[in-house]
Design a protein around this nucleic acid. Sequence first.
DNA 1: ATTAATGTTCAGAA
DNA 2: TTTCTGAACATTAA
Length: 283
Amino acid sequence: MPELPEVETMVRGIRPVVSGRTIRDVVACLNSCKPISITPSFRVLRDHLVGKKVIDVRRLGKRIVFDVSGGANLVVEPRMTGLMVLANPPSTQHLRLRFDFRGRAEFDSLWFWDRRGLGTVTLLAPGDIKTRFGPEVLGVDALEMTVEAWIDCCGKSRREIKVVLMDQKMVAGIGNLYASEILHLAGINPMTPANELDRKSIRQLSVASQSILRTAIEDEGSTLGDGTYRNALSQSGKYQNRHRVYMREGQPCRICRNGKITRIVQAQRSTFLCQYCQGISLK
DNA sequence: ATTAATGTTCAGAA
DNA sequence: TTTCTGAACATTAA
């Protein structure tokens, strides 16, 4: 579930605690749970990181990037259920990796907890970090998506716009949850082929994307029913209370109050929508 | 007790 | 070339 707002929240929680600190040790598979995918290998990762200093922690799409002294990067991909926490992980069962820091402070370890274990951790050599990702929906300077980039991105695919929004090579940061929310705010039918959207709709998409994601960051992301997602201190997000459509099938639309939220399936994933707000005639 | 579904990504097939 | 399918894994609901 961690999408841009959740990953951004993790980074904001971790950065002030971890930046400037030296890695004392890295420990894998606490409580002997299964190892997650580590590239090139846990051994290499550990040997390289121990003794290095964390220069900065930042977000790239849905990934957490640690810049370490010497120029290498540690890239953590939470995928479905991965979390980076400084304390109180949801359970002791799925602690996959632990980073210990030198010196003494309020928090001396950073954990990678992952219930499903689909997350990945990659150590990249200096200079190897290049984004196979599209531009950021929210990002610094040139990395941030412009309306022109949106027009370009939509124009080159015939796939449904919902599917294109989730394609990280087109735009980095949007996943299944926020795609539904964004399209509802933009008043766009999720099934519309991306290349059939007019300029006005694309502009609305651009505005809606930034608006939804910014608000979700302010609310520290969405913690769904299973309670999996938490911030760095293991507290729940609040944005789920403001969901317009996601997981609200059958409930009245909060905006138009005309009808109920509908669930459809696109690319094997649930999409939630309001047929009135999004101009859809369902047969 | 099986089976399907769940937030993501990617390799390999169509 | 672009788009689609299934697999990686753990847990819950049906």
